[in-house]
Amino acid sequence: MALLEVTNLVAGYGKVEVISDVSFTLEPGKSIGIVGPNGVGKSTLLQAIAGGIAPKGGTITFDGKNIAGKKPEDIVRLGLSLVPEGRQIFSGLTVRENLSLGLTGRRNKKGANEAILKVRELFPVLLTHENHQAGMLSGGQQQQLAIARALISEPKVLLLDEPSLGLAPTVITDVFDRLKEIIEMGTAVVIVEQRANLVTSFAEKTIVIRDGKVQSTLTSADAANSESLQRSYFGAGE
């Protein structure tokens, strides 16, 4: 059974419909990439899944429960965490406080210390800056903090919205290496990226969104073929 199943999702802001029909499934411990040009509603899609906005239609089944329209604070407790676009760390709080906030979303309060230790092991750089204001960190460190903070609730699914945004190429590699480790440790990952090549290289499948709909689904084999990627990304005629 799929861990996360999105069916015919419709979402948007106010009267504007950004996502008109998106469906996909995600198995436990697997990864899925979502790509598409700027402004096609990739962030809207993630926000709708995580409860940031209420979907206008369709269903979102997570772990056998319909979570469409639930509050974000309840969804994170079920085991689905979003790392929002632009990281959104609390720059006025310390690194330690940012991480502690991640604990609020845990289902059970037991095992919190282990989770913190695990995250620290994964992101050793955060340990050295623990008492610094999070706003003082570099872009890459802030992104690591945002991911670490979401991981502390030990989610079954981690949603990431453009983790490469504003990062230098070497830093991006670093962040994506961490993501691979996270997947290997058993967390399923949904990753939205504007740069398709970043995602297709490691996600089992990648869906391309255009005009609010799923335009095509690529496997990693397709992705290796850059021509087919180009075609599905930009549309056949262009």
């Binding site: 995580a50 409860g51 940031g52 509050k71 974000p72 604070e73 994170v76 407790r77 965490s81 979003l82 929002p84 959104q88 609390f90 720059s91 006025g92 709080l93 406080e97 502690s100 906030l101 991640g102 609020t104 979303g105 845990r106 903070r149 979401a150 609730s153």
Partner: peptide, 18 residues
């Protein structure tokens, strides 16, 4: 801590489970 976080950015605080 939750009050301070929510004052800075309620949306993100909720995503974390506040």
């Amino acid at each position: 801590l939750q009050l301070r976080a929510a004052s800075a950015d309620f949306k993100t605080a909720r995503l974390l489970g506040v």
